[in-house]
Design a protein around this nucleic acid. Sequence first.
DNA 1: ATCCTTATTGATAATGATTATCATTATCAA
DNA 2: TTGATAATGATAATCATTATCAATAAGGAT
Lengths: 149, 149
Amino acid sequence: MNESKICYEDRRENWIDSLRSRGYRLTEPRQVVIDVLAYSSRALNAAEIYDSARKKYSSLGLVSVYRTLEKLEELELIQKVHHPDGCQSYIAGFTGHQHLLLCNECGLTAFFEGDDLVPLIDNVSSDSGFDIQDHWLQFFGLCSNCKSV
Amino acid sequence: MNESKICYEDRRENWIDSLRSRGYRLTEPRQVVIDVLAYSSRALNAAEIYDSARKKYSSLGLVSVYRTLEKLEELELIQKVHHPDGCQSYIAGFTGHQHLLLCNECGLTAFFEGDDLVPLIDNVSSDSGFDIQDHWLQFFGLCSNCKSV
DNA sequence: ATCCTTATTGATAATGATTATCATTATCAA
DNA sequence: TTGATAATGATAATCATTATCAATAAGGAT
Ligand SMILES: [Mn+2]
Ligand SMILES: [Mn+2]
Ligand SMILES: [Zn+2]
Ligand SMILES: [Zn+2]
């Protein structure tokens, strides 16, 4: 039994439930977009999702991809991924306090947690006079597959 | 004597010297763009720079703003600032190992250093199998002016 | 100081990504 | 099954950025 497959399936169910409980209708365009993104381990932009989802549902319109992304982002089920060469791709949203880890080679995305920035934030606060409210932290590197090639 | 003014003036000189030593000509469009950005404590996008620089040089073309930004970025004198609502604005580049601190209210940008992420990077590396090469760290909050209002 | 080469410019058109419009279709509660 | 209307795909519009090109101006050579 594949552990990660179960996780992806749960994610798909959760996204669909969230849409429905918000009163949004469950349509085929939304389903195929969700099927692509909920199972992806890489961040995908609208065009990539469109290409992939059309293999299952060829009459899908690109505009519906944008509209579905908008809904999923509004419900905080997905989030934009910022990257040196583009900030318009999406991946599943964080659960709890997590940050992103991105493979520079294949784009694989992973989450990590356990950062403790409190001492640094205290120092920077008193040095700068800022009241620091949020932080972005993101790691880049090579995933285990790509580093061994 | 104003300390920060001297710093901005040095930055301006440095950018102009860098352009010239790279063989680029020193033109009025480039000078007014540099004058805006080198003295700015907020990240600015092309349109904002255009509006501001035209007050000094009204025949400036928007395209020349883009072209100048391209050159300055190529020379690593400026850098893009990623922000929840836009990633096309620029600020002076880092000197050494620095990170950004942004005011959510007025956009004031400051630099900080002194982060030590090595222990975290070691943990995440062994947990994930990634070879971590780079990191992005950015703080958001309220600057000393905005927090007291 | 005057030429001359050519990098640079601004006006304009083209591109590409995202968003708005609208008649048609499909969802889902009644 | 029906009906109100949310959602769709086709299409057009918008917006930011990039490409084209003839005219201009920077700056080294004379
Ligand atoms: Mn954190
Ligand atoms: Mn750092
Ligand atoms: Zn990889
Ligand atoms: Zn970004």
